[in-house]
């Protein structure tokens, strides 16, 4: 509900220019709060999901190249991944649907579909590639799907951010691409650690920056 000093909702009495301008600012802010997707919420959700999922993988399999040298139960990784990623997807879809309910602005559904198709295709590609060379390298086979998926996610963020002039989103995309490469450089063993810290941590930093940006935007809108 928009509250503007000196006015009540539904009142059609004559507005002074000051009242009109105040009403425009208040209504803009109320509309933005109701319709806009909170980037900080989504970055934070995915940051936590990646931190937990990749972190658990590293703690259970500190040596990806030797899957038998696990330091914890392997089932933990098999459980944590779908739970963490599934929860993040649930939070994302629920938030987006609630904010964009009834809004027809074109492209939203296609964007979501292309994201799903792109990441699924990258995962399949990453699963097939290491198995083309015999004998299969277990370390490479364990990280290749993730490497391909993160590359696609980074590209989607980078291109989408550039298209919508969202510098933070573009920076997140660029960062994910860079971290994905940096995490690979020392070898397959520490890839999960690199993605937990750099990927999950990067998302969490982006969440903080997005939150500050939104707060700054609201202060400007109030003026």
């Amino acid at each position: 509900m928009t509250e503007t000093p000196g006015l009540t909702t539904g009142d059609d009495s004559e507005l002074s220019p000051e009242q009109s301008l105040a009403l425009i600012g208040a209504q803009r802010q109320a509309t933005r709060r109701a319709l806009e997707i909170d980037d900080w919420r989504l970055y934070g959700t995915w940051g936590l999901a990646w931190l937990i999922a990749y972190g658990t993988t590293y703690l259970v399999f500190p040596h990806a190249s030797d899957p038998d040298a696990n330091t914890g139960p392997a089932w933990l990784v098999a459980v944590v991944w779908p739970v963490a990623i599934g929860a993040a997807m649930f939070v994302t879809v629920r938030h987006v649907l609630s904010r964009r309910a009834g809004v027809l602005d074109g492209g939203g559904t296609l964007f979501g579909l292309s994201y799903l198709i792109g990441t699924a295709a990258a995962g399949v590609t990453g699963s097939i590639l290491p198995r083309l060379i015999e004998p299969v390298d277990p370390g490479l086979a364990s990280i290749a799907p993730s490497v391909c998926i993160v590359l696609v996610i980074g590209m989607i963020y980078l291109v989408s951010g550039a298209f919508w002039s969202d510098r933070l989103q573009a920076a997140v995309g660029g960062w994910l691409i860079v971290v994905n490469i940096l995490a690979l450089l020392p070898g397959t063993d520490t890839y999960s650690l690199g993605m937990a810290v750099g990927g999950g941590g990067g998302f969490l930093v982006a969440a903080l920056l997005a939150w500050r940006r939104d707060r700054a935007g609201e202060v400007v809108a109030d003026r």
């Binding site: 507005l15 009403l23 209504q27 509309t31 809004v103 027809l104 602005d105 074109g106």
Partner: peptide, 27 residues
Amino acid sequence: IHAQARLRVVVTLAALPNGGSITFPRL
């Protein structure tokens, strides 16, 4: 536009991207 209710309607619709629209109940 210069009436409180219609001004609020226009401001809300102007927040949508160019060419965007919204259902009556959500508005």
